[in-house]
Write a protein that binds this DNA or RNA. Structure first.
Lengths: 171, 171
DNA sequence: TATTGTTATACTCTATAACTATA
DNA sequence: TATAGTTATAGAGTATAACAATA
């Protein structure tokens, strides 16, 4: 009964069993960053996916939208409306190559828009680097790259369970 | 003309200007992990958000769904159908506290389901730790936590732009 | 047979506004 | 006035299936 439930915050003490979960923390961090970057890019009429498409076309002029989709992990079916939107905005030009393939290039306006997007992305990344520290950025990128790889052989022999343990319950 | 476009892969050489972008790499890593975990949890009829809700209720019995929503960054409006679904599955019980607040608790079946979910989450996290290395996990969690904080004062005075620089174009 | 591009569709997640009942 | 919970709705993002045209 002597709980102290109504003193400081919401309830007596909030327990967060998610602080040590890599998957969850990664998801929250990603959502936060994409929200911030999305708000910034929204000011120039671009969504994050559209900005990355412009970056890829600029770096690989003449590529197909299937190439871009593969690089970004976006299904071909979902690339169609994305590229159509960029063409409707006059940012991307398309020329037949194959009869079935179309070569993508940035228009002059597309290059101008991309320059603006680059500035916003650079500002965002600079903010992240300020939080992470100079070496933190490289360490984080390295760890994310390691995550992408399958575990090294033999590493699964000692399963290190680290999920919040069941707390004592029912007395 | 001597391009070599049709030799090895798709085109001559694919350039990826996104490899150094923390925001993008974090987003891709998060999507990959959530896809894997979602597939695993799907086998026991739970989505990642539902599993985290069960974890939070178990760690904070008697909490309100507003508490859970705040902790998970889920809007109240979106918590309603989530909790309703968990109650319909018989995993969560609810008792009025306030007249406007309801105390959430896991049912016996909810605890059983959570135990299964915990095992799947632990296996997933163990796989990640195998990729990251023993210390890698802690370093990654530390960096993600640093990311959450606003940049330290005075760190933004030297904006380190590191977005893929415009490559030579038009010849 | 495999690939490009397209359409249609559905499902999840998220965001907003509006409403009620209560503190 | 602020909070808890609900409903409705709209917008992204993503996933699958199917199709036509081409390689």
């Amino acid at each position: 009964m002597t709980d102290g439930e109504h003193e400081s915050g919401r309830s007596a003490a909030w327990v967060d069993p998610l602080t040590r979960l890599v998957g969850y923390q990664l998801r929250r961090a990603s959502a936060m960053l994409m929200g911030e970057l999305g708000a910034a890019l929204g000011e120039i009429g671009l969504r994050p996916a559209e900005a990355t498409i412009l970056l890829l076309i600029d770096a690989n002029p003449g590529c197909s939208q299937s190439d871009v989709g593969r690089a970004l992990g976006i299904a071909r079916a979902n690339m169609a409306p994305l590229v159509a939107g960029l063409m409707r905005q006059g940012l991307v030009d398309r020329a037949p190559v194959d009869g079935r393939s179309q070569a993508l290039e940035l228009s002059a306006e597309g290059e101008r828009r991309l320059a603006a997007a680059r500035a916003l992305i650079a500002a965002h990344e600079a903010r992240l680097q300020a939080s992470l520290g100079e070496d933190g950025r490289d360490r984080l990128l390295g760890l994310l790259d390691a995550l992408r790889q399958p575990p090294a052989a033999g590493s699964m022999l000692e399963p290190v369970a680290d999920v919040p343990p069941p707390r004592a319950k029912t007395e």
